[in-house]
Design a binder for these strands. Structure first.
Lengths: 408, 408
DNA sequence: CTCATATAGTTCAGGCAATGAACTAAAGCT
DNA sequence: AGCTTTAGTTCATTGCCTGAACTATATGAG
C-alpha cells in the first residue's frame, strides 16, 4: 500500500513550514521506528534507515541528537551474519513517565518507562465519593512524590505524567468539566503541582479514553480501530481510529453510555432519557438484579452478583442479559456513525462477559448484521490498570512524536 | 490562539520528510491563503505573506510556481493607500473542475471554477432504478463531454472531476459497494472514461458525504463541525469535523440512517431492525401517511404529502412528526458518539422542516439535553445540487491542498 | 514640480537538512 | 591472509527558507 504524501501543515493551520520542521518530523520518525521495533530486539542505525526510508547518513545524524537528548541509548552489538555488526538502539530505560489515576475508591500512581513497561506502581485506597478536589489532589501529589523518589533512587528520571479521571475533561484547560461520581463540576486542577519541574508537565485524560489507548498498545491482535467500552458506575467509551484516539470536535466523543437504547426508558444522570447507562451501568444492573448497592461496598455487591449469576438466579441473569442486549444496540448504532466493527469490553463488562456475550452478539446481529464479527468482540487485555497505563502511554507517545521538545 | 506545531508525517505513515516537502506544503499554504480570501478581493503577495507567516521572498517564489502552473493569475492593481500598489492574485478563472451526479431519477454534470462558482450545469432526467451501471455511465460520459466542450469554447479547462453516487463507495478502488436504489452491488466504475485525459482524474463520492462538504463551503454561519442528514429514499449522512469530512476507518462513517431508533421496529433494507430509515425514509413516511409511493413519481407523491400537511391531514402530520421525533433520537445518539452539536437538514428533511422541527427539537431536548441549541438545527443552504457541488468542491480542495500535482 | 515616505516586490548571501557517493570499520567466509 | 559483506561516517551537492539590502511605484507635503 502506498503511503499518503506527507503534509506539513493542515489546511486550517496557518503555520509556515521551514526546513527545521523536516528535522523535527524525521526525528520523530526515527524515534518512532526504534520504539516500534519488537521488544527485545534492538535495531541498528541501518535497520532504522531501512524502516524509515531515510538514508544511513541522515539516520546517523538524527540518532546522535536522540542520544544527546538521552531519549535513546546504544546497547550491545547486533551481528547480522556477515559484515560489521550493528550497534543496537533502544529507548532509554532511565527515562520514564508517571501514570496517575483518581478514581472513586482509590488514587494510584505508576512509573512507566519509555518502552511501556511498568517499573513501579502504588495504589492507595481512598473514598473519593463527593470529595473536594483539593485534598484528593494533595494526597495524589504525596503519592506521586514518593513513587518518583523511589524511581529516582533507581536512577530513573520522570519526564512527565498523565492523569486519568472518571469524567469529562478539558485537557487544554486542565479542567474536569464534570465527574458525577466524584461530585466534581468544572474544577481546575493544578497539574504541575503533581510533578514539580518535570520536563513535559502533566496531561489530563478521561479515564475511558486513557484505557482505550492502553488497549491499543497491549492488544494481542494489534487492532488499530476499535471501540473500548468501559462499564463502571457509569458507562464510558473511547474510540480508537487508525491508532489514534478519536475525540471529536469538543473532545468528548465516544460517550456511548448515553446512546439512547430505550426510548421509553428512565431518566439518566446526564439529563437524558433511556441512555445505555440506565440499563448497563453498575447501579442499574445491581438494582435490576435485586441487589442493594447501598449495603456494603461496590466491589462486594459485584461479588454478590457474580455468585448469583453462577448459581443461575433468574433475576440476576436477566439483568445482565438485558444489559448485554442493550449494549449491542448501542454498539450497532455506533458502528453506523463511526464505521467501526470491533469492540473491547472493559470494566464490569469484562467481568460479566461470560453472561453478556450471547445476548450482546444476538443484538449486534439483529441491529447491525455483518458489522461485528464474533471474534471482534473481545475482552480488555489490560484490566483495571488500563487508565493508568493509557495516561502514561499517551504521554510517552506524544514525546515519541515530538522528541524535539526534550532540549536536543 | 497558538497554532499546533506542524507535523510532516503521521505516526503511522513511514514517509521520510525531505526538504522538498517543505515547498509542497508551503505551496499549498500560499494557494490556500489566496483561495480563502473574501471573494472579490484579490490579495497581493505581501498580504499573502502576512496571512501565511512566510517571508515576502518565499511567497514571491511560491507564487511564481503557481502562476507557471496556471492555477492562479495576476489581476489588476491593488492600491494600499500610500506606497506601491500590490498586484492582485486570484484563482485562475479558466481552470475548473466537473461535478457529476448519478441519482435515482437523473444524471447531471456541472462545471465549477476553482473559486467554487458554478459556470455551467446540465441535468438529464433518466430513470436509473435498478439500472445497469454501464449504460448509465455511458450516458453520463456523453453529458460530461458535451458540458466539457461548451466550457472549452469559453476557454475553460477541466482539470478533474468528482462523481457523487447514492450508495456506499470505495473511492480508492472506484467501486460502488452498494447502492440499493440503483440496484448496484459492488460495481466498478471506469471513472477516467468520464473525463478522458483530465489532469487530476475523477474521484468517487457518496452523495450525502459530498453534500455535507458542499454545506461546509456554503454555510452562512461558517460552521466547521456539523452533521448533515439527507432524507432521500434512504437516509444518508455526512459528518464534518474541523472542516474535514469524517469518514471513519472504512470510509463509511455517518450512516445515521441505520441508527436504531425503534428496537421493536421493522426490518430495514440493510438487514438491521428498527433503523431510522424505516421511520424517516421517504417510503416509510409516505406509507405511514397513507400515500401510495407506487402510483406516480416520487416527486408527485412528495407534493401530495405537502398538500396533505398543509391541510392538516392527521395521518400525514403524525407520520412526519414521528419521523422528526425519531430523527431526534438518532441525532442525540450521534451527538454522544462523535461529540457534535449542530445539524443541517437536507433532502426531504429540508422540505418537511416546518413540520419536522418541533418534534425534532422535543426529541433532542429529551434525549440529549444541552447538546443541540435550536439555532444549531438548520436547513441545507445548497439544496438539491449539494452532491454535485460537494463532489466538485472536494476535488478543488484536494487540488488546493496539493498544488504540486499540477506539473509546477 | 520635487522630494520624502511608505509599501510592494526582487535579489542575494547564509544557514540548515537531506542526499548520494566515497570511505572507514568490523565482522564472517574461504 | 585475503575477499566479501554489512555498518556507520564524512563530505560535496542540492534545495528551500530567511533576513537584509535593494529596486519599483505609489501618495502627499512643501
Amino acid at each position: 500500500m502506498v503511503m499518503p504524501a506527507p503534509a506539513l501543515a493542515g489546511p486550517g493551520g496557518a503555520a509556515p513550514g521551514s526546513v527545521g520542521d523536516v528535522r523535527r518530523s524525521n526525528l520523530a520518525l526515527v524515534l518512532g521506528a526504534i520504539a516500534e521495533f519488537p521488544p527485545g530486539t534492538h535495531p541498528s542505525r541501518a535497520q532504522v534507515a531501512g524502516a524509515t526510508g531515510l538514508t544511513k547518513a541522515s539516520v546517523s545524524s538524527l540518532v546522535l541528537d536522540l542520544l544527546d537528548a538521552g531519549i535513546i541509548r546504544e546497547i550491545g552489538l547486533n551481528p547480522q551474519g556477515r559484515g560489521r555488526p550493528g550497534v543496537g538502539l533502544e529507548l532509554s530505560p532511565s527515562r520514564a513517565v508517571m501514570g496517575m489515576e483518581i478514581n472513586v475508591d482509590y488514587i494510584s500512581a505508576a512509573v512507566v518507562d519509555l518502552a511501556g513497561t511498568v517499573l513501579l506502581r502504588e495504589l492507595q485506597e481512598r473514598d473519593n465519593r463527593n470529595s473536594q478536589d483539593m485534598p484528593v489532589l494533595a494526597a495524589l501529589a504525596v503519592l506521586a512524590a514518593r513513587v518518583r523518589s523511589t524511581a529516582g533512587e533507581q536512577g530513573v528520571e520522570i519526564l512527565g505524567g498523565g492523569l486519568a479521571v472518571p469524567g469529562l475533561v478539558d485537557p487544554a484547560g486542565a479542567r474536569v468539566l464534570t465527574a458525577p461520581n466524584l461530585g466534581w463540576v468544572n474544577v481546575y486542577l493544578d497539574l504541575d503541582a503533581l510533578l514539580p519541574e518535570a520536563a513535559l508537565g502533566v496531561e489530563l485524560f478521561n479515564e475511558a479514553n486513557a484505557a482505550a489507548l492502553a488497549e491499543l498498545r497491549h492488544r494481542p491482535d494489534g487492532a488499530s480501530n476499535f471501540l473500548f467500552v468501559s462499564g463502571e458506575v457509569g458507562v464510558g467509551g473511547g474510540i480508537v481510529i487508525g491508532s489514534e484516539l478519536f475525540t471529536g470536535p469538543g473532545g468528548h466523543a465516544g460517550e456511548v453510555g448515553h446512546i439512547v437504547v430505550d426510548p421509553d426508558g428512565g431518566h439518566c444522570s446526564c439529563g437524558g432519557t433511556g441512555c445505555l447507562e440506565t440499563v448497563a451501568g453498575q447501579d442499574a444492573i445491581f438494582s435490576a438484579a435485586g441487589l442493594a448497592p447501598e449495603g456494603g461496598s461496590r466491589s462486594a455487591t459485584m461479588s454478590a452478583l457474580l455468585r448469583a449469576l453462577e448459581s443461575g438466579v433468574p433475576k440476576a441473569v436477566s439483568a445482565v442479559e438485558r444489559a448485554g442486549y442493550c449494549l449491542g444496540m448501542a454498539l450497532a448504532s455506533t458502528a453506523r456513525v463511526v464505521d467501526i466493527d470491533s469492540v473491547v469490553l472493559g470494566g464490569h463488562f469484562a467481568v460479566l462477559e461470560p453472561w453478556l456475550r450471547a445476548p450482546l452478539l444476538n443484538s449486534l446481529h439483529k441491529y447491525a448484521p455483518g458489522k461485528y464479527a464474533s471474534e471482534h468482540v473481545t475482552v480488555s487485555a489490560v484490566g483495571e490498570f488500563g487508565a493508568l497505563l493509557g495516561a502514561a502511554g499517551s504521554v510517552i507517545r506524544s514525546l515519541v512524536e515530538a522528541p524535539h521538545r526534550l532540549h536536543a
